[in-house]
Amino acid sequence: MNAKDGGSRKRKQDSAQSQKTEGHESDDISSCPLISAFKTFQLELDTKHDKYERLVKISRDITIESKRTIFLLHRVTSVPSTEELLTESEVKLDGVRQKIRQVAEELRGEDLYQFHRAFTLGIQEYVEAVSFQHFIKHRSLISLEEVNCRLVFLNGDKSEEKGIPSEKQGPQALTFQVTPTDYLLGVADLTGELMRMCISSVGNGDIDTPFQVGQFLRQIHDGFSYIGNTGPYEVSKKLHTLKQSLGKVEDACYTLRVRGSEMPKHMLADVFSSRAALLDPEDGVA
């Protein structure tokens, strides 16, 4: 055996030993508690981010459908009968609630406030839509308890999918609770829709609705005044917009009361709109 053969065999042995050592090191790294912990954290973060993105998409759908319901409800000033319109709006709101049910499914077993920013805008828009519908029906403000009572869903279908008869297991309730902050922000946004409703109603010869809305807005303003600057920042910021909406309605109602008898009804809407427009340049907060 010459020196060349001996050197080649030595290199092969060293290579095999190196591969074996690398394999042991790889096994040691994969079994390291620190690496395992970081892999667990990675999986948890990825799962949380995926859930957050799904909630953002659902919230966007809730916002769109709620806005469509509000646009539909604005037709109440131009239709002879409101029953059919309210029935149609209820069907749309039922569809929105099914979207909220998806949010509740995503939040099952989770801390709501970890994902609150993902769906808060959609919930505020839903509160605005359902409170607008409630005002048209009853000329009053829907309570937070009434809003949450409509967000209780039965999950009897889940037991049937698992092969367990639902009558034996009993219906399971899945609930979604609107937070007080989302409720207040939705009610604050309602004031803008009521001001638009005033303009439309006057254009159709209805001069009673603006005064009803004005009284209603004063009550809401009084309620928000108790909160003042002690509540969340978003609430205090929207309080300024609420004051502006109330001022526009009151100023227009004053015009209707003083000049309403001296001009035709079809011209009152122009007066109402012009008086509201005069206040727009003073708007400090959108």
Rank of each mutant, 00 (worst) to 15 (best):
S26Y: 06
E22R: 08
T179D: 05
H74T: 05
K67E: 06
N155F: 01
L144I: 02
T120F: 02
Q124W: 02
Q212R: 08
D5W: 11
V271Q: 09
V147S: 02
F176D: 05
S274V: 11
G192D: 03
I142V: 06
E160H: 07
T255D: 14
D94K: 12
S59N: 11
L34H: 12
Q244F: 01
N155C: 12
I70M: 08
G205F: 07
G260H: 12
E160N: 10
N2K: 01
S66K: 01
I35T: 00
L144Q: 01
I164E: 14
A37M: 08
H116N: 15
V258P: 03
A16I: 01
S31I: 00
G109L: 02
P232W: 00
K57G: 09
R68F: 15
E145P: 02
D283F: 05
F272A: 12
A118H: 05
Q215S: 14
K48G: 14
M263C: 01
E105K: 12
R218F: 01
E167R: 12
I100N: 07
R218I: 02
T191P: 02
T230K: 01
F115M: 06
K265F: 08
S66M: 04
L112G: 09
K237S: 06
K265A: 09
G156D: 10
M267R: 14
E110W: 01
P165N: 09
A104V: 03
R257M: 05
S66Y: 03
A269Y: 05
P232Y: 02
D111W: 08
Q13C: 06
C32S: 14
Y233W: 06
Q124S: 03
S18R: 14
S236N: 10
V152T: 11
I29P: 01
I64K: 15
I29T: 04
V96E: 09
K99F: 15
H74L: 05
G7A: 11
D189R: 11
K10H: 09
G205Y: 07
C198D: 14
H49N: 12
H74V: 06
Y113Q: 12
S30W: 03
D222Q: 11
D157H: 13
L93M: 11
D111F: 04
G163F: 04
L72D: 07
D222K: 13
H116T: 09
K265C: 09
F135Q: 08
